[in-house]
Design a protein around this nucleic acid. Structure first.
Lengths: 233, 233
DNA sequence: CTCCAAAGGTATGTCTGCGAGCCATTGGCT
DNA sequence: AGCCAATGGCTCGCAGACATACCTTTGGAG
C-alpha cells in the first residue's frame, strides 16, 4: 500500500463538532472582513439553512461569539446579530508545527487564483469591485489592515468564478492570519504591501496571467519570510 | 456586507453525515489507487482513530462497500478488509454544473504542486518514488490507468511536503475523476498522457519549477478540453 | 498441541445535534 | 393606535454517532 498518501486520505473526516465548526465559520466571516464591524449577520434561520446545521447549533455558536465580544444580538423586526465596532484581540498562539504546510498551500492557491483571474475576461462590475477593494486596503489603518487585506485577496479568488477555489483561499487565509496575528505589523510593511497589491491588481485588469502570478508570488513570499523569521527562532 | 464572498464562507459546514463522509474517504482511497486491489485496508480500529469517527461508523461504511463489491472482509488474526481484484463501474453521472469549478481548482492545485515539488531538494527515496509511479502509469493497462495516473499525481503532491496540499489534490482529483469516468479513454490519449507525464517528472527531478508548471498545465488542459467537449454538448 | 494476539462481529447506554413548534420583542406600516 | 412581519429566545422528543465492553474467529509462535 502506498504509505504516505494515506496520511492525506485517512485524515479526520471532521475538523470538530458541528458547534465548533460553526463558530469557526462565523469567526472567519468577521476576521476576514466579509461582514464588517457594524454590519449584520444573516438571520439565525438563514444561517442554519446555509451552513446546513440546526438553528440550535447556530444559536450556540452565536452565543459563544457574544461571550467573546465579537457580536451583539437585538430582538424584534430589523433586529439581528451585529458585529461589534471594536473586536477582541485574536486567540492565543496555536502550534506552529505546520508553518510549511500553511505557507505552501497559500502560495499555490493564491498565485493560482491571481493567474486564473487575469486569464478571464472580467465584467465591469468585477473590475470595479477589485479596484474598490484595492482602494479600501490602501487607505486602511493599521488596526483594520488585516481585514481589508483579506477582503482584497478574497475578491481576487472570487473573480476566478470558482466557488471551491474561493472557499479554499478563505480557509487558507484564515490559517495564515492566525500566524500573522503574532508578528508585528509595521508601517513600512504596509506601504510595501500596498505597492505589491497595486501590481497584482494591475496585472489582473490588464489580463496578464504571468505577471499577476509573479506579482502575487512576490507579495506572498514577503510575508512568508517575515513569518519564518519571527516564528522559527 | 460583501455579497459574493458569503457564498464561500457560508457554505455548508459538513458535506454529509459521518457515515457518508467515511464511505467517501474509503472509496477515494480505493479509486485513487492508494490501496490497490488485493491489498488490505487498515484495521477498523485503526481507521476509526485516523478518521476521527467511531468504529461503528467505520463498520457501517465498510459494510456499504462490501455490498457494492468494492471490498471483502475476513476474520481472525492476519484477516482484515481487502480490496477486490475486480472493481465495480463507477456510480452514475452526477451533475456537471460545476465543471468550471472542478477544472479551475484542479488546475490551480496541480500546477502549483508541480511547481512547488520542482522547487524542493528531493531526497533519493522521493526521487525513486516518483520514477516508480511514472513507470507504473506508463506500463498500465487501460482498465487500471485512471488509478495509476492518480497515484502519480498524488505522489507529486506528496513530495511538496504539505499534507494540506496533498489532501486538497486528492479531493480535487476525486471530483475530476467522477467526470472523467463518463468519457471514453483511448489508447492515443494514454500515450499522449504518458509523454506529458514524463516531461512533468523530468522537470521536477531537474528542479525546474517553471518547466514543471508548464508541463503540468499542458497535461491538464488536454483532459480539460476533452471533458468540456464531451460534457457541454 | 496449545496458546494468544489481532482482526472482525455484536450489544448497550449516553450524548450531541436536529427538527419542529411556540413564545417574546421590536419597529415600520396602515 | 393597532397590526404584523421578521427577528431572537426557548423547549422537547427523536435519530445519529459515540465510547466501551465483550464475543468469535483465525493462524502463527512457542
Amino acid at each position: 500500500m502506498a504509505e504516505h498518501a494515506q496520511e492525506a486520505l485517512f485524515r479526520p473526516v471532521r475538523a470538530g463538532n458541528a458547534f465548533e465548526e460553526t463558530v469557526e465559520r462565523l469567526m472567519q466571516s468577521i476576521r476576514l472582513g466579509v461582514v464588517a464591524p457594524g454590519e449584520r449577520l444573516p438571520s439565525e434561520r438563514d444561517l442554519a439553512t446555509r451552513l446546513g446545521v440546526s438553528r440550535v447549533t447556530v444559536r450556540e455558536a452565536i452565543r459563544s461569539l457574544q461571550e467573546n465580544h465579537y457580536v451583539e444580538s437585538r430582538r424584534g423586526r430589523y433586529g439581528g446579530t451585529f458585529v461589534n465596532e471594536v473586536l477582541p484581540k485574536s486567540a492565543p498562539a496555536k502550534d506552529f508545527g505546520d508553518l510549511h504546510d500553511v505557507l505552501t498551500l497559500r502560495r499555490v492557491l493564491e498565485t493560482g487564483a491571481a493567474e486564473t483571474a487575469a486569464g478571464r475576461s472580467l465584467g465591469p462590475a468585477e473590475r470595479r469591485g477589485l479596484r474598490a477593494r484595492l482602494e479600501e486596503a490602501s487607505t486602511s489603518t493599521l488596526a483594520e489592515y488585516r481585514r481589508k487585506d483579506s477582503r482584497l485577496h478574497l475578491a481576487i479568488a472570487e473573480v476566478t468564478g470558482s466557488a471551491a477555489l474561493t472557499a479554499a483561499v478563505a480557509e487558507s487565509r484564515m490559517r495564515a492570519n492566525e500566524l500573522l496575528d503574532h508578528i508585528p505589523l509595521l508601517e513600512p510593511n504596509l506601504a510595501h504591501s500596498n505597492a505589491q497589491h497595486e501590481r497584482v491588481i494591475a496585472s489582473i485588469l490588464d489580463g496578464d496571467p504571468g505577471a499577476a502570478r509573479q506579482a502575487m508570488a512576490e507579495h506572498l513570499d514577503g510575508t512568508a519570510s517575515l513569518l519564518r523569521g519571527f516564528l522559527s527562532v
